[in-house]
Design a protein around this nucleic acid. Structure first.
Lengths: 357, 357
DNA sequence: TTGTAGGCGTTATCAT
DNA sequence: ATGATAACGCCTACAA
C-alpha cells in the first residue's frame, strides 16, 4: 500500500528540485527536453496526480459546488441533482451534497460546514422550516462572505441572488384551463400551506384561471394540507383528510393538486368513492414524477423539468464564479457586480395522460 | 463583501502572533486568561471558522466521503444516500456525490477526480458497464493507494473490501415461497442479464425455491431483459417484451420480478390481457420503491432497506478510516489490517400488499 | 506566556 | 536550464 506520490518524492527520486518537476509536468519550456521526458515518464509510471486539496488551498478555490436540498428521496430533487452534476462535471466541477431534511437548524449547520472553504458556491432549495420562520440570516451571511448562492424552486425575494424557478403560476393556469375546457364546473385545489412559495403561486394560478373564465372560486373547494412535519407514516392521515374533503364536496368534477402525491391520493380516494376517472372526475397534478406514468389511470401532469432546472442553476453559478474570478483581477466596483441578479424561469409543459379527457 | 477572516488577520489586528491566536482559540492553557478572552471575543465578532481546506491539507484527511452511484434518479439509490448522509453527518463527515451513469469511463473519471485528495474513502455501487467488462483495475488502484472502498448492492468478489449487500438469495426464496404457498403453479421470473450480480443471485433464489418444492423450473418462464442501455424511452419496449412473454406463456399464475419497474410493467400487461390480480396472477417485486405503495393493486415487495444499507456502509467506512488512523501511529503490520474484510448482509423483508393472496 | 519555524502539496516569482 | 523561496491557512514542537 503505497500512498499517492507527490512532487517532493519525484524530485528526490530523480534528484532534481521540486520546482523543476512541477514545471516539467506542466510542459514548461523552461525545462530541457531531456529532463522533461525523464520526469514525465517517471510521473506516469507512478501515476502522479496533483493533490486537489493543495491546489484548492493555493488557488483559493475548490472547483466544487455545494448542493443543499430538503430531501433526496424525492424524484424532483433527484432530477435536479442529476442536472447540476451533469453540467458541473462538464465544466470541471465536483458536487457535494447536503440534506437539510426540511430543518432550519440542519440547514444552517450544513451551510456552515460547507462554507468554510469546502466549496466555491451553493445551489440550494430552502427548507420548509426556514420558510416558516422566515429567517434568512444564514443566506445573507454566506453571500456577504463572498460566496454566491443560486436558489431554485423554493425561492424567496428577501435573498438577493440568482434564482431558477418553474413557471408555477402559468403552469397552474394551464392546468386549470385544461380542466375547464374539458367541462369541469367544480374544480378542487389540493395544496400546501401558503408559506411554501410554490404552493402559494400555484394557488394563485388556480384562482386566476377560474377568474379568467368568470367562475366563482369557492373556498370550500380548496384543501390546504399541513405537511410541515410530513413523514412517510402520515400517508394514511393524508388519505383520510382527502377522503373527508371529497365526502363533504360531492360536486367536485375536477382536481388540481400541487404535487404528485396529493394527485395520486386524490385519485385513490375518488375511485374508492365509486367515481370514474376521467369521466366523473378529472385530475391533474403538478410535478412529473415516477408515479404519474405508472398510476392507473396514468396522471396528467404539469412537468417541472427538474433536470433542466439543475442544469440552469449550475450554469448560473459557474458563470458567476468565473466572472467573479475575472473581476477580482480587474478590480471592478462591487456595486457593479452584485446588483443585477437573474431569475430564470423554466417553462412548464402540460403532459396529457389518461386522468383527463 | 468581506472575505472570511483568517488566523493571520486576527493576529495582525490584535498584534499577537498567529500561533497565539491558534492556541487561544483552542483554549490552550499556555495562553493567559486575558489574551484568550480578547482573542476569542474578536474571533466571535468576526465569526471566525477554521478553513476546512487548510485543515485537510495539514491533517492529510478531508473528513469527507465520496459516493459513486450509477444513477441518482432511482429511489433505491436515493435512500442509500440518505442513509450514508445521516451517519456521515453524525460522525462529522461530509458527503460528495458522483454519478457514473452506468458508464465505465465516467466511473473511472469520477474516481480519479475524487481520489486525488478530495475524499478519505469511497462508498460505491458498480456500474453495469463495468460489471459487463469485468474490469476492476480502477478499484484495485484506489485501494492500493490506501483509500478504502465500501461496495454496496452491486458487489463483486474480485474487489477486496468491505461490502454491504441485501440478502438477494434468501429474499428471492422468500418471495417465491410465498407465491408457491398461495397456490401458484407456474411462476414466471422477470430478471436482468446475469452480469448484474443481484440479478444472478435473485435468479438463483427463484430456482432454489422451486427446487425445494420439487417444482420444475421451466426456462420458458424466465424472461431476461437486456437493459444494458436502459433509457427512459425504452419503457414501451419493455412493455412489449413483457406482453409477448405473457402471450406465449398463458399458464403463468405467479410473477416474481427482480425490480419494481418490471413488476409494475408485468401488472400492467396482466391487466391488459384481462386477467385479475391477485386472483388469476399474483405478483411480487424486489425493491421497495414509491411505485409499489401506490400501484393498483398495491404491490407485494421484498424490501431492500436502502437507508439501512447506506447507514451500514457509512459506518463500515468510517470505522475503517478511524482504525487506520490509529494504526498509522502504532505501526501495525499491513497484512494484519488488510486481510479481513467484512461483508454485511442486510436482511430483506417481505411486505405483503394486494398483489398477492 | 508568547513567538518562531516547519510542514502539509502546489505553483509562481525571482534568483542563479 | 534549474533551483530556492514564498505563499495559500492551519497546527504544533520547540525556543525564548
Amino acid at each position: 500500500m503505497k500512498r499517492k506520490i507527490t512532487l517532493k518524492q519525484i524530485a528526490k527520486e530523480l534528484d532534481v528540485s521540486i520546482s523543476t518537476v512541477s514545471k516539467a509536468l506542466s510542459n514548461s519550456k523552461e525545462i530541457s527536453e531531456d529532463t522533461t521526458q525523464k520526469i514525465q515518464a517517471f510521473a506516469k509510471l507512478y501515476n502522479y496526480r496533483p493533490n486537489n486539496i493543495a491546489l484548492s488551498l493555493k488557488n483559493r478555490k475548490t472547483k466544487t459546488i455545494g448542493i443543499l436540498i430538503p430531501e433526496i428521496v424525492h424524484h424532483f430533487f433527484s432530477t435536479v441533482i442529476r442536472g447540476i452534476e451533469l453540467v458541473a462535471n462538464n465544466r470541471g466541477y465536483n458536487v457535494i451534497v447536503g440534506l437539510s431534511n426540511e430543518s432550519f437548524t440542519k440547514e444552517i449547520i450544513n451551510m456552515e460546514m460547507l462554507a468554510n472553504g469546502s466549496i466555491d458556491g451553493f445551489i440550494l432549495s430552502i427548507s420548509k422550516e426556514t420558510l416558516l420562520k422566515q429567517d434568512y440570516h444564514h443566506f445573507h451571511a454566506t453571500i456577504n462572505q463572498g460566496m454566491p448562492i443560486v436558489l431554485f424552486d423554493r425561492v424567496v425575494n428577501e435573498v438577493k441572488c440568482d434564482k431558477v424557478v418553474v413557471d408555477d403560476f402559468k403552469g397552474s393556469v394551464k392546468a386549470v384551463n385544461k380542466l375547464i375546457s374539458t367541462g369541469c364546473k367544480n374544480i378542487a385545489l389540493i395544496t400546501t400551506m401558503d408559506y411554501v412559495s410554490v404552493g402559494r403561486l400555484r394557488t394563485q394560478g388556480y384562482l386566476e384561471a377560474l377568474q379568467e373564465h368568470k367562475m366563482h372560486a369557492d373556498s370550500n373547494l380548496i384543501l390546504k394540507i399541513d405537511d410541515s412535519l410530513d413523514v412517510e407514516d402520515q400517508l394514511d392521515n393524508l388519505e383520510n383528510e382527502v377522503e373527508n374533503f371529497f365526502k363533504v364536496n360531492k360536486k367536485i368534477d375536477g382536481v388540481f393538486a400541487v404535487n404528485e402525491l396529493y394527485a395520486v391520493t386524490a385519485m385513490k380516494v375518488v375511485r374508492k368513492l365509486g367515481l370514474h376517472i376521467p369521466n366523473d372526475v378529472q385530475v391533474i397534478g403538478f410535478t412529473d414524477g415516477v408515479l404519474s406514468k405508472h398510476a392507473r389511470p396514468s396522471l396528467t401532469t404539469v412537468s417541472q423539468h427538474g433536470q433542466k432546472i439543475g442544469e440552469k442553476a449550475a450554469d448560473l453559478l459557474i458563470d458567476r464564479l468565473e466572472r467573479d474570478e475575472l473581476e477580482e483581477a480587474d478590480y471592478i466596483e462591487e456595486s457593479d457586480r452584485n446588483e443585477h441578479f437573474k431569475t430564470v424561469v423554466i417553462e412548464t409543459a402540460l403532459i396529457e395522460r389518461d386522468s383527463t379527457k
